[in-house]
Simulated scan of single mutants.
Amino acid sequence: MSLARRARPIAVLGFLAAGSLGIISSTQTWLTVARADAGEAIFVPGASALPLLAPLSLAVLALGLALSIAGRAVRLVLGLLAAATALFLGWSTLQLLTGEPLDAVGATVTETTGLAGSAAIADVVASIEVSAWPYATLVGWFVLLAAAALVLVTGRRWTSGGRRYRTDAAHDTHATGPVDAIDSWDDLSRGTDPTR
């Protein structure tokens, strides 16, 4: 089986896996805030730490489903959209992991404590612990980027889907001679009237 034939299912699975991981990750705890006032720890889910995580993950799932039936030109557009999404989400996740995640916990801390403003939030936060979910999600964005690259490199050579549903003049070959019941059913299947 050639790379072009294997590329479509591999790319679709890559899109769906990355999108599913993003959706699941958006509901899991990414950051745990230990409070300086000895209050209960605050758990920050992925959707709060990275607000665009859930909607863009849903978009990636939709791109994967569309990729499974898309034509040649649309495949390239879907590959470009997926690559841009992977780069954006990967960069955002990487910034959260390597930078100061105080901004990522701000909304959840404000909702829990009622305190607003960066100075007030900084006074409440004693430490922030990062879970494994952002790292796993970052791997998912690398998978999405690789799948998008696969689409962009091999997408032109994929076979087009849906040809069996088209009626072309090339399929309209009538044999000379008597027409039997099977030929009539075949003509009906192709969309032609066998009685003419």
Score class of each variant (00 low, 15 high):
Gly64Pro: 14
Val44Lys: 07
Leu50Val: 04
Ala4Met: 13
Thr32Ser: 11
Leu152Cys: 12
Val33Phe: 06
Ile42Phe: 09
Ala86Leu: 01
Ala116Val: 00
Glu100Asp: 04
Ala181Tyr: 08
Gly99Met: 05
Ala17Met: 09
Gly106Met: 12
Leu3Ala: 11
His171Pro: 14
Glu100His: 05
Arg196Ala: 01
Asp183Ala: 01
Ala84Arg: 13
Arg166Glu: 03
Leu76Ser: 06
Leu31Gly: 02
Gly71Ala: 11
Val143Lys: 10
Arg35Phe: 15
Trp158Arg: 07
Thr176Leu: 12
Asp123Val: 05
Ala7Ser: 04
Ser57Thr: 04
Ala38Trp: 12
Leu21Gly: 12
Pro178Glu: 06
Thr32Glu: 07
Asp183Leu: 05
Gly79Asn: 06
Phe88Gly: 01
Pro101Ile: 01
Ala119Glu: 15
Gly19Thr: 09
Ala49His: 04
Leu152Tyr: 02
Phe88Pro: 00
Thr192Trp: 14
Gly114Cys: 04
Leu102Glu: 01
Leu150Ser: 04
Met1Leu: 06
Pro9Arg: 07
Asp123Ser: 15
Ala4Asp: 09
Ala147Lys: 06
Ala54Glu: 04
Ala18Lys: 05
Ala59Leu: 10
Thr113Asn: 06
Val33Pro: 15
Thr113Gln: 03
Trp141Leu: 06
Leu89Arg: 14
Leu81Ser: 07
Glu129Cys: 00
Ala11Thr: 10
Ala18Cys: 08
Ile69Cys: 09
Glu129Gln: 10
Ala181Cys: 02
Leu53Arg: 02
Ala149Asn: 07
Val179Ile: 13
Ser118Ala: 07
Ala84Met: 12
Leu78Pro: 15
Gly140Tyr: 15
Leu81Ala: 12
Gly114Ala: 00
Ala119Asp: 14
Ala169Arg: 03
Thr176Asp: 11
Pro45Phe: 06
Gly191Val: 12
Pro45Leu: 02
Leu61Tyr: 15
Thr173Phe: 15
Ile23Lys: 14
Gly64Ile: 00
Leu152Trp: 02
Leu52Ser: 03
Ala36Thr: 05
Thr32Tyr: 10
Ala84Val: 01
Glu40Ser: 03
Ala59Met: 09
Thr167Leu: 11
His174Gln: 06
Val33Ala: 08
Val109Tyr: 05
Ala73Leu: 11
Ala11Met: 13
Ile23Asn: 12
Pro134Asn: 11
Val130Met: 07
Trp185Cys: 01
Ala11Asn: 09
Thr159Trp: 12
Ala181Asn: 02
Leu94Met: 09
Asp186Glu: 14
Leu138Lys: 01
Leu102Ser: 01
Arg6Phe: 03
Gly191Met: 09
Val105His: 09
Ser20His: 15
Thr159Ile: 06
Gly140Arg: 15
Ala86Phe: 02
Ile182Pro: 07
Ser184Phe: 05
Pro194Leu: 11
Pro194Gln: 06
Val105Phe: 03
Thr154Phe: 00
Trp185Pro: 00
Ser92Val: 08
Phe142Ser: 03
Leu3Arg: 08
Phe43Ser: 05
Ser48Ala: 05
Pro45Met: 01
Leu3Asp: 10
Asp180Pro: 15
Gly117Thr: 04
Leu144Glu: 13
Val105Ala: 09
Asp183Gln: 12
